[in-house]
Write a protein that binds this DNA or RNA. Structure first.
Length: 290
DNA sequence: CTCCAGGTGAGTC
DNA sequence: GACTCACATGGA
């Protein structure tokens, strides 16, 4: 009782060695609040997320983001600190809107998310605001995930597959409960195998993803971009529709036309261009532009 | 009160 | 392909 050898985990953490994350530029808060991931607790000087079953704590000290030494490799990979941001930026199109988005979002990175939790949360996303998606994710994790120090894991497809639709509805999912449940069941059955999907060409992977209940073109594209590192993929939601209409001088278009337009204009890192435009449009309400 | 939110799926032409 | 409609819930 109370000897130095019986320190609790919190005290032990204080003795851990912390290191600066190596790669700048990196804007952690913007990255976590840009609508690509919904499971993080974001504060001014500390962010906590559950990654690979335990808490990844990132703290701000002396102008740098730091993680515990043991988590460095994980953090570098999870936050995509190896993405060549300077090269990505230089590939952005020259139009006024793309350049404005670039100027206002420097440091935003597209992270590497686990396949299932990315897929599952975007299945819950239709007709919901980002703040609501976060709340549904939190409710699902609290109720059906594993409690770990610092939070809750995202419930596995196997766990969700055993529940009833009503069990998901109480987490605020509404009509999305049916889709998430059915998706959990097909994924738990291994059809498709989410890990194996990473070996397919993007078009084939999208085709297979879209067979999952609740996954249309937009959700599939989000999953390809955020969980399969397909950085050329462009999800088009209501915000991107507004952006594209403006870029096309007021012409709205069919999904096929918007696909073709972004393929032609956004370059090899089209998904990055999209994410910067999305976040810029959302945080600026597109107000000086509409 | 009305309007809208990181859409999808079914039905129709 | 393109268009229309219903779909739950909560915040502005």
């Amino acid at each position: 009782m109370g000897t130095v050898y019986e320190l609790d985990m919190r005290a032990q953490q204080a003795f851990e060695e912390w290191m600066d994350l190596p790669t700048a530029p990196f804007d952690l808060r913007m990255t976590l609040e840009s609508g690509q991931v919904f499971h993080w607790e974001v504060e001014r000087e500390k962010c906590v997320g559950i990654v690979e079953g335990e808490a990844l704590v990132v703290r701000y000290r002396r102008g740098r983001w730091q993680v515990q030494k043991k988590s460095e490799g994980l953090a570098v990979r999870y936050f995509s600190l190896d993405h060549p941001l300077e090269r990505i930026w230089s590939s952005f199109p020259e139009d006024r809107l793309s350049q404005a988005a670039l100027k206002s979002c420097r440091g935003l990175r597209i992270i590497r998310q686990p396949r299932w939790e990315c897929l599952a949360t975007f299945i819950t996303s239709p007709l919901k605001q980002i703040v609501q998606i976060r709340k549904m994710s939190l409710a699902l994790r609290k109720k059906y995930g594993n409690a770990v120090r610092g939070g809750w894991t995202y419930p596995s497809p196997e766990v969700l597959a055993c529940l009833r639709e009503e069990d998901l509805r109480v987490c605020g999912l509404g009509f999305r409960a049916r889709n998430l449940l059915r998706a959990a069941r097909v994924v738990a059955a291994g059809d498709p195998d989410l890990e194996g999907l990473g070996d397919f060409e993007t078009d084939r992977a999208r085709e297979l993803l879209m067979r999952i209940p609740g996954v249309g073109e937009k959700v599939a594209n989000c999953v390809l971009l955020f969980a399969y590192e397909r950085l050329d993929v462009v999800p088009v939601d209501v915000w991107m529709s507004k952006v594209l209409r403006q870029m096309r001088r007021g012409r709205s278009g069919t999904p096929a036309q918007l696909r073709e337009y972004s393929r032609r204009h956004f370059g090899p890192y089209a998904g990055y261009v999209q994410q910067y435009l999305f976040h810029y449009a959302r945080t600026n309400q597109l107000s000086p532009l509409v």
